[in-house]
């Protein structure tokens, strides 16, 4: 019986994580990952954290939220403000802790009334919350209004980033794979039945929302110290939608899917960098193509497990899917079948 932490599954994940950490560290030391690529890598890490945390709210609990960037900004500003007077790692951690507390508080206050809403109404309400947070920051002295805070000390490093990516994904996975996660999934599946099974749906919805907001604020703090400058408009609706895109792209309900989506989108962004304005068009096309060919997202609702990671079939299928995608198989099939229809 796997009664403690030290079971095969946990250990394998730990070893995989550590191996991945040292691999990237090695690549940085050797010079394969140049500072230029490191920017992309950090982008991927940040959006993996954000995507996974939003997925806990949207994919696992089924509560649509468009205010995620708002909670990110709380973390970013808290860190930036503290870092002004304490420009070192201790300052960053203190800022993170303060941001986390504010996020938890704000998300709780917001969640209790808004999570009674459903579907579109909830989306609009959370969108409003994100905007309120932005406007408040825009009009506060301590946040320096519209010009934002610049010259934030650059404290990010691969070990620091990796630590937070690992911890936030682990916590999200632990959240999902527990009685709390089961309750949340049951709310997504059928809220009425969930309540009839003795689940306090409000409590679990608020819990998931607060958890997501907490992780988002951590990502925000990391964002501040990675990009030197933060402004209120950095955390507007656009950013919330960017995070949402990652969740949808990777598959709602699949935490690992969000991480994979962040990697794929980060790479697409980077590879097409030289094409300047064409980049956004290609990015948009990639999203459209995914929505046509795989509306459930890259991983659907399933998680990448140890079994799938170590199985050759996974990569074969992925490759096959990619080839089908590039050769537009679905269109060819559709064209062929309509052609037949006409003949008749």
């Amino acid at each position: 019986m796997k009664n403690t932490f030290l079971n095969k599954k946990n250990l394998t994940w730990l070893i995989l994580g550590v191996a991945f950490f040292f691999l990237i560290q090695l690549l940085i030391q050797v010079g394969v990952i140049t500072p230029y690529y490191r920017v992309t890598m950090y982008w991927i890490c940040l959006f993996a954290i954000l995507g996974v945390s939003l997925n806990v709210i949207i994919g696992v609990t089924g509560q649509f939220s468009l205010g995620h960037a708002g909670f990110m900004s709380i973390g970013a500003y808290s860190a930036a403000v503290v870092l002004r007077s304490m420009p070192n790692l201790t300052g960053l951690f203190i800022g993170m802790a303060i941001g986390a507390l504010i996020s938890l508080f704000v998300s709780m206050v917001v969640a209790i009334p808004t999570l009674r809403l459903k579907g579109d109404y909830l989306a609009i309400a959370t969108l409003g919350v994100g905007e309120i947070i932005r406007i408040v920051i825009l009009n506060m002295k301590i946040t320096n209004g519209a010009s934002g805070i610049s010259n934030i000390p650059y404290l990010i490093s691969w070990p620091l980033m990796f630590f937070f990516v690992f911890v936030s994904i682990m916590f999200s996975a632990n959240f999902k794979n527990s009685a709390i996660g089961r309750a949340c999934i049951s709310i997504k599946e059928d809220e009425i039945a969930s309540e009839a099974m003795g689940i306090n749906t409000t409590k679990y919805k608020v819990m998931a929302f607060m958890f997501g907001a907490l992780i988002a604020s951590l990502a925000g703090a990391l964002y501040a110290t990675t990009y030197y400058v933060i402004k209120p408009e950095t955390f507007g609706i656009n950013n919330s939608i960017n995070i949402l895109v990652i969740v949808v792209f990777g598959g709602m309900g699949s935490l690992t899917g969000s991480a994979v989506a962040a990697i794929v989108l980060g790479i697409i962004n980077n590879v097409f960098q030289p094409l300047a304005e064409w980049r956004m068009i290609i990015y948009a096309l990639a999203l459209i193509v995914i929505m046509i060919f795989r509306p459930q997202g890259l991983l659907g609702t399933s998680e990448a497990s140890l079994k799938t990671i170590f199985s050759l079939d996974t990569y074969k299928n992925a490759l096959k899917g990619l080839i089908d995608l590039v050769t537009l198989k679905k269109f060819r099939v559709a064209a062929a079948s309509t052609g037949k229809g006409k003949q008749r």
């Binding site: 527990s178 999934i185 599946e189 009425i192």
Partner: peptide, 24 residues
């Protein structure tokens, strides 16, 4: 009104959620 995407076992586990003796 079953939890359609979940296994039979998980459907029952959700009904037993009160037995979980741990918090967040």
């Amino acid at each position: 009104r079953l939890f359609k995407e979940l296994s039979v076992l998980d459907n029952v586990k959700i009904a037993m959620n009160n037995e979980a003796r741990y918090g967040i």
